[in-house]
Nucleic acid binder design. Sequence first.
DNA 1: TTGAAAGCGCTAACAA
DNA 2: TTGTTAGCGCTTTCAA
Lengths: 337, 337
Amino acid sequence: MDNRDNVQRPRVTINDIAEATGFAASTVSRALSRPGRVNAATRERIVAVARELSYVPNTHARALTSGRTETVAVLVSDVTNPFYFGLIRGTQHQLKAAGYTHLLIDTENSGELESHTLSKMRQSIDGAIMATSRLSRRLLAELAAELPLVAVNRMVRGVESVVLDSPSGVAQAAEHLISLGHREIVYMSGPQNSWANEARWRSLVAAAARHGLPVHRLGPFPAGRMSGSAAADALINTRATACIAFNDLLAIGMLTRLRERGVGVPDEISVVGCDDMFGADFCYPTLTTLAAPIEQAGRVAVSMLLARLHDSAPATRQSAVLPTHLIVRESTGPAPR
Amino acid sequence: MDNRDNVQRPRVTINDIAEATGFAASTVSRALSRPGRVNAATRERIVAVARELSYVPNTHARALTSGRTETVAVLVSDVTNPFYFGLIRGTQHQLKAAGYTHLLIDTENSGELESHTLSKMRQSIDGAIMATSRLSRRLLAELAAELPLVAVNRMVRGVESVVLDSPSGVAQAAEHLISLGHREIVYMSGPQNSWANEARWRSLVAAAARHGLPVHRLGPFPAGRMSGSAAADALINTRATACIAFNDLLAIGMLTRLRERGVGVPDEISVVGCDDMFGADFCYPTLTTLAAPIEQAGRVAVSMLLARLHDSAPATRQSAVLPTHLIVRESTGPAPR
DNA sequence: TTGAAAGCGCTAACAA
DNA sequence: TTGTTAGCGCTTTCAA
């Protein structure tokens, strides 16, 4: 007995179509999933009947025999972090266009959950796109050896990846601040295990060095708006007139705190964020930030992954680097004299 | 030949465990998925060996025979709408706690996509939670008859649902504005086919009527920050000193435009939003808004759905109503004289 | 180009 | 309590 009150209509299978058309089930299967290997007329007939009976292929049966699921997992550390908006949209569109199912997974900032989920899901997905992985280099490479994987915002040897050209972006931000007369620039550091954080810091050091300026870093601060208070307080305690924050979330948190403490932005301190996430254009003051084509990154990652899944050629292990650019808004201004 | 270079380790199946323990495959199956119906010692042995071989059950094979997938779909009209953050978190946690997989689906504001996706997914999910459905009453009820379904933020007869008590919340907002001396309050309407929009409008009318005040509505405006400009311009054109916007997205868009046009908030116009979404506390000025326990709504929805899936009793077709409350921030103030 | 038949990994009768 | 057996719906050899 079915314990739900839902109408469980008898599902249409290829056998029903086989019966209705007089062809064998195997022919129906071929006609539906491998149209090239069947007589055109036969295929048309079968497809027509399939539609008529509103046949829906059983993905489980298909996956069981073929191993393919037409599903790609997209792992992000926190679905509700606006930074991922663009990535989610990009992967979503590109996957849908290719007829794939988008399985969005929230790894809750845990590297362990990443690999655990992925191995549990192994048979349910054809591949995965991993954003901002918290995994160690070694573990990530191991994972990539077990299933088709593309990393976003993380570069590891042996793993295909799409990264944003933070170095050039951070350099732009530094030039911008320097051109405004700032001489003491501080980097508000994000989580220590963040690859992007290290990349940003290093390029800031390099950019400042080119101008003969020293830079310091404060933190690390957990990536989140909450950390903004501590970050702002720490910053006020220095002689710096400008800072570049690991990301917009942190920067916005700082703006709130600076306002609370009566420190004028940009009159006393200039703040630059990273990511141009949702909210950067309506916080107060609006945030100068480093924008990256994250939606495009999602699309590129999907393309790379699908190429990998479809091509007979071995993966090329390449990585794509996408350009970033600075968006100047109200939170930066001339250095106070 | 495998065309990927990934190591396809031979997957461990229950047959391997059967062989290793000497039990029949069916016993292994029972021990693993129905522990009560097997000798304790047997179970222990089997579980131990399963772990040793790092066995992972094949979800497709399981779904194929049993029809159960331990997966629940959560449909939202737009994953990147901050309003859903709490809902996503709530459902995520509750589902994970119950050992279910969370399949997050973006329906891109299309009712058609909702039902289409759901019927395609029918065999891949045990049930669904549908937020803010765009479907007609009839279609939603039909869908609910076909699979276990809980609607959030939408009330339809014959469909279990979790809704937020907007009426009481909007009344609070109205009282707040009236107590500040506002006499001309306008409702900035959201999409016409939105159930919540109608509910909010009706309760505002009722609340105002209790004070003998008339209210007008402007719009409808598409729910999005972009619509804020048109909404703000329309509002300025009236004699209203206060407005309640369909949601925070719209309200924040309005704030931006009002600032552009040099209209003081709250000095000249007070603005109230709905939802207390991400950003409402850092926009400028910070937004007075109606907060709803949306995360709790997600948890409750999952509980209702799981009860439905597990219990032998027929669904009770009940609906839960969660309280809302007003959060007063900077965007509301005394009416100008 | 098409059909027959085997079997993917698991669950669920039924029997013992 | 456990084993035997028969599929779930599909894909994929292998033959015709």
